[in-house]
Amino acid sequence: MREQRTILLTGANGQVGFELMRSLQGLGKVTALDRADLDLGDLDQVRRAVRELKPNLIVNAAAYTAVDFAETDVSVAMLLNADVPAVLAEEAARLGIPLIHYSTDYVFDGTKDVAYVEDDATNPQNVYGQSKFAGEQAIAAVGCAHLIFRTSWVYGTRGKNFLLTMLRLGASREEINVVVDQLGAPTWSNTIATLTGNVLSQAIMHENDAWAEWWGGNSGVYHLTASGVTSWHGFAEAIFALTEGGRKPVVHPIPASSYPTQAKRPANSRLSNDKLENTFGVRAPDWRDALRLCMASR
């Protein structure tokens, strides 16, 4: 009988981490750590946690995601998004185990006219994007077996995200202005976790040398978002179209220039999932279908 592998999951209370606690069930013995269990600001504690558990796989869903606050909270953003992944990668390499990590569309500057592929030149325009790209670079520099999944416009039924903000504003306003000239794929946190589980299930079937060979052959960066494309305005309209009862505000399209933010956002956040699909045979659902399921689960 195959020995059950131990999976260390960080960021268990986050949008993606919470969903991963469910999608990873059955793939191994999951040890899920949140802020109460692990102070990510203490890199020595992070090292100790890995060394004490001695997992067979690390899944890092912890991150600093407050994009605008990162502009003035640079050191903390870099600590959580670059230094912590670097330490996890170092410990993974020491144990000879793989690491799964999540990154962002914000590593690109958004000037491309079509969807970005993994090999396109990066050029993050804000501190959040810079910190996430630094995390990618740190993992690659260490050289441990890894999967880095870049995603975009993450939302869900917990935490702080665009979906929950729209529902809150829609409950009290007759009209809302939403940016129309930034494009991307709203991606449900459950979609990210489910596809991660689907990919990982392919690795779990392998034992010993075959396990290491699978990771060695598939390590790298992959884009993982919902299928399709919309604007923030289109996303907002879709949210209210699925909202049953109550107030449904009028959603006015506005240019990004009319809604200044501390952090600069890319105009084009579209990511191609072709590499993910061609390598692992998994296909992300259309963003509207995923949103419909998410709204029904509230």
Rank of each mutant, 00 (worst) to 15 (best):
T72F: 10
M21F: 06
D68Y: 09
T31H: 15
W211E: 07
I176F: 06
L200F: 11
P260R: 11
P124K: 01
R2W: 10
A134G: 06
Q125A: 13
R150A: 01
V142K: 09
W214P: 03
T279H: 09
R292S: 15
F240W: 09
A296P: 07
S231P: 03
I148Q: 03
Q125F: 05
V221Q: 10
H223V: 08
W232G: 01
V87S: 06
A185H: 05
H252T: 13
A93Y: 07
V250H: 09
W188P: 00
T10P: 04
D289R: 12
S131W: 00
L80Q: 00
N268Q: 06
A210E: 15
V127E: 08
V84M: 07
E207V: 12
S152E: 04
L163M: 13
K132N: 03
R283D: 08
V178E: 03
T122E: 08
S272T: 06
K112I: 04
D37E: 13
I100R: 02
T225H: 02
N56S: 15
T165P: 02
R292M: 14
L200R: 01
V59F: 00
A241P: 05
S227N: 14
G246W: 06
N278W: 09
V117L: 10
F69N: 13
E90S: 11
Y102F: 15
L27V: 08
T10F: 04
Q45A: 15
Q137L: 10
L9D: 00
Q15T: 14
Q137K: 12
T230L: 07
D120F: 04
C294H: 06
A263I: 05
Q25E: 15
F235E: 00
A296G: 13
V74C: 10
L20F: 06
L9S: 02
D42K: 09
L38Y: 02
A290Y: 04
D73F: 04
K132H: 03
R47V: 10
